[in-house]
């Protein structure tokens, strides 16, 4: 009789302890989840301020001119972000065009075409590339890629501002997103069912035909996920891009050898004070950046679903 009472007591106590632990652990979870909301609320608050007369009076920025303008900063309060959005999309698109084929072929090589040792070695190479911080790529871009671009420009008898150009930015971005796309593609390719490939080979297709027409087709959804991640990364990449973009004052600029300006380089370069219009407007650019990332993500995810359907 006494034993049952104690067991009951222990059980009851355990229940209470567990409930308290559960609630205690819920707190950090809510905290961790709240940061996204904090980002949205406070960046919106600071980013909207420049357009409010209640905040900046006569100096408040004209929202329409901000969204559609093609000049970044005419004193005292004209900021135009339209050409920056176009430049950003242009640079990101071309860097993806360069990085995607290289990444997919590299992933094929690592996942399917070589011995285990070589495959492991190349996998580590790509992982290390993925781990190199943005600032180091910035130094590399400014020290090496500018020189490469200068030589390319000379071939076409064009001038660059010391190698700082749209093309340099594209190259730097391509290098930075290549590892991301490659690593996800490797996972996708490795997940393709063996019997699909074996069937293809048994039907007389060559190894390459099988890889391109069976393996890649079956892995495309996973590869596309890698591309989405890579494009997201290149849209938000700031430090390295700022070092080689040149921050052109007007645009849009489609000339590969001219300087460019991206949303992130606009936010990062030329911070002089940490208050005032010129600082707060960077938060407005931040809002544009976040919106752009969300829109492109949605579009790409939509495209991914479409592609996935017709396989």
């Amino acid at each position: 009789m006494g034993l049952t009472v104690t067991t009951k007591k222990i059980k009851q106590r355990n229940k209470i302890v567990d409930k308290i632990t559960q609630i205690a652990l819920l707190m950090p979870t809510i905290l961790a989840a709240s940061f996204v909301l904090l980002i949205i609320i406070f960046i919106s608050e600071r980013g909207v301020a420049p357009f409010l007369e209640s905040q900046y009076g006569d100096l408040s920025v004209d929202l329409i001119r901000f969204l559609l303008g093609n000049e970044w900063y005419i004193s005292p309060n004209v900021y135009g972000v339209f050409f920056i959005i176009i430049n950003t999309l242009y640079v990101v698109f071309l860097s993806a065009v360069i990085a995607i084929p290289i990444s997919i072929l590299t992933a094929l090589f690592i996942a399917k075409m070589t011995s285990k040792t070589i495959s492991n070695f190349f996998q580590i190479v790509i992982e290390l590339l993925a781990a190199i911080p943005s600032i180091v790529f910035g130094v590399f871009g400014l020290g090496v890629i500018t020189n490469v671009v200068k030589k390319i420009a000379a071939l076409f008898q064009m001038q660059t501002a010391g190698g700082i150009s749209t093309l340099t930015t594209i190259f730097v971005l391509a290098i930075m997103i290549m590892p991301t796309i490659t690593l996800l593609s490797i996972t996708a390719i490795k997940a393709v069912r063996k019997d699909l490939e074996q069937n293809s080979l048994a039907l007389g297709a060559t190894k390459m035909q099988t890889l391109f027409k069976i393996t890649l087709v079956d892995a495309k959804s996973g590869i596309f996920a890698g591309i989405i991640l890579g494009v997201g990364r290149s849209l938000g990449e700031a430090t390295a891009v700022s070092m080689v973009a040149g921050n052109a004052g007007t645009g849009p600029n489609f000339n590969l050898f001219g300087t460019t300006r991206t949303l992130t380089s606009t936010m990062l370069l030329g911070i002089k004070e940490t208050t005032g219009l010129d600082y707060d407007i960077r938060f407005s650019v931040g809002i544009i950046l976040v919106v752009l990332i969300i829109v492109i993500n949605l579009l790409l995810n939509f495209a991914k679903k479409k592609i996935g359907r017709f396989s």
Binding site: T29, A33, F42, I43, G286
Partner: peptide, 16 residues
């Protein structure tokens, strides 16, 4: 909400 943090670029965290 926590998963969304992974997609936020670092410069936006700077603004935070």
């Amino acid at each position: 909400l926590i998963e969304m943090l992974t997609g936020v670029p670092s410069i936006i965290f700077g603004l935070l």
